[in-house]
């Protein structure tokens, strides 16, 4: 799905991202962990062609992502509120994004019906603009909108941080299910090592821009992460 070679980005002489080689396949759930400043968000932005690479390249389905736009057909992401159009109501935003994927209003409504429990009655028909929702609810809107086009690649930056416990658990289930049933490739970053080892099939540990460990998810991953993050 995604291949990264020799990817480098530095700010003021300090390496923000420095990944020699990385391949991510369909059906994988990648958990990206690392302390603040490890380069997780910068890495995400590079994957989405939102910042210029200093060196190296990112290919999606074999195609360079810089200079092309076809990857937008099957890629969706939610990194922060900058991914929402804050002067729209949630409904308007969903219809807007749906339309970009050739989904009409009925199709979007049908899609939203599935996420009713996820929204927990706090999002739809509230008569509010997105800018007036709380951060957690904005996150819900962003995640569901990202799923609208049935993406093959989904990138979420710290999805667990702003969600309530019920929604966190729901999201974990959703991610696992989508990866298996739709062979979706999902990349999430998180500071919650418990949650991340639960959801991921593969965990990448970042430190100072480098991927220093690439391990399989699950209980052993959790122990390895605890070992790493313990006060050193």
């Amino acid at each position: 799905m995604i291949s990264v070679t020799n990817l480098k980005k530095s700010y003021k002489g300090i390496n923000a991202v420095d990944v020699e080689s990385l391949t991510i396949n369909r059906g994988e759930v990648i958990g990206l962990v690392g302390n603040n400043g490890a380069g997780k968000t910068t890495f995400f932005r590079l994957l989405l062609d939102l910042i210029r690479t200093d060196e190296g390249e990112v290919r999606s389905k074999g195609e360079l992502i810089t200079g092309t736009e076809s990857w937008k057909n099957y890629t969706a992401a939610y990194i922060d509120e900058g991914f929402l159009i804050d002067y729209l109501t949630p409904e308007e935003y969903f219809y807007f994004v749906g339309k970009l994927h050739q989904l009409g209003k009925p199709a979007v409504d049908e899609f939203l019906e599935k996420y009713k429990p996820f929204f927990d009655d706090a999002i739809l028909q509230k008569g509010k603009y997105i800018r007036d929702f709380s951060k957690g609810n904005q996150f819900k809107i962003g995640i569901v909108a990202a799923l609208l086009g049935n993406p093959e690649l989904l990138i979420l930056d710290e999805p667990f941080a702003n969600l309530d416990p019920t929604t966190q658990l729901r999201l974990v289930e959703m991610i696992k299910e989508m990866a298996i049933q739709q062979q979706m490739c999902i990349i999430v970053s998180s500071h919650d090592i418990n949650q991340v080892s639960e959801v991921s099939s593969r965990i990448l540990l970042m430190e100072k821009g480098k991927i220093i460990r690439d391990i399989e998810g699950g209980d052993t991953a959790y122990e390895a992460l605890v070992e790493y993050f313990k006060v050193r």
């Binding site: 932005r45 989405l48 937008k72 922060d80 900058g82 991914f83 804050d86 970009l100």
Partner: peptide
Amino acid sequence: HFDGLMTY
């Protein structure tokens, strides 16, 4: 929201 716009 230009970041988001560029990934739509």
